[in-house]
Design a protein around this nucleic acid. Structure first.
Lengths: 122, 122
DNA sequence: ATACGACTTAAACCATGGTTTAAGTCAACA
DNA sequence: TGTTGACTTAAACCATGGTTTAAGTCGTAT
């Protein structure tokens, strides 16, 4: 089973190493192993979990929420219903945010069209 | 010409009065008049400008960026090209963010479908 | 006349999400 | 053998975007 160093993991996901250390400290990356010298070893499973963390981060889930999700993952199959409910709720929140941004984008487009008209005069 | 009190403005846009005071301090709401008692009076024009500020805020433009935009509005027609360029750039940024969220939403949907399958077993 | 509610200010406070720093350890290569 | 580069830690630091507090001023209804 392949393991990744912190620099490899950071490169894979294009985020700073410091952020990975911060996430581990916050409990978003639990059970990371260490080599003999104390260096982090990311397993394939943990890379996949990191992918999920980043997916949730990309959709603006707060650290505390991601932490709760990860705690449930670790707790095991008994939390599947909770995780499902969380993801369903989060999906609604994300769709609402996308809607708000999409609506607001119309306001921006309107500005662009007005400025495009007016710019002729200058 | 109708004027709005801070509480009316806050109610119109559904944001706290404290946020309006904060925005004014940050230069996002310039030239707000006061009545004899020192209370803010929002004109129709300023309500419209506030709408724009909130539109930019909804699309995650930082305060500093909104401030620059407002400064250009005040400066007058000579800044129309700059404002147009800013809005065009911002539109690209917003579309990129919507894309990222939309993509990440697929990851969330995948989680939902997997959990929905597995939940049968519990 | 007075008490209430809405408003004012400046300054302190807070949460969030990292980033940076300082001091040190270790492996591998010249 | 020594020095370089990648890594470690804890703690300090930072930016952003507000919110809250304290103390005070008005206008109006009782």
């Amino acid at each position: 089973m392949k393991y990744y160093s912190i620099s490899e993991a950071a490169a894979q996901f294009n985020i700073p190493e410091s952020t990975l250390r911060y996430y581990e400290k916050k409990g978003l990356l639990p059970l990371i192993e260490r080599d003999g010298a104390g260096r982090r070893l990311f397993s394939e499973d943990q890379m996949a979990l990191l992918g999920t963390v980043i997916c949730l981060k990309n959709t603006n889930m707060p650290i505390s929420g991601i932490r709760q999700y990860i705690d449930w993952v670790i707790e095991g199959d008994s939390t599947i219903a909770l995780r499902l409910e969380m993801m369903q709720n989060h999906k609604q929140a994300v769709m609402a945010e996308i809607s708000l941004m999409t609506e607001s984008l119309e306001g921006i487009d309107y500005k662009i069209s007005r400025y495009t008209e007016r710019i002729q005069d200058y």
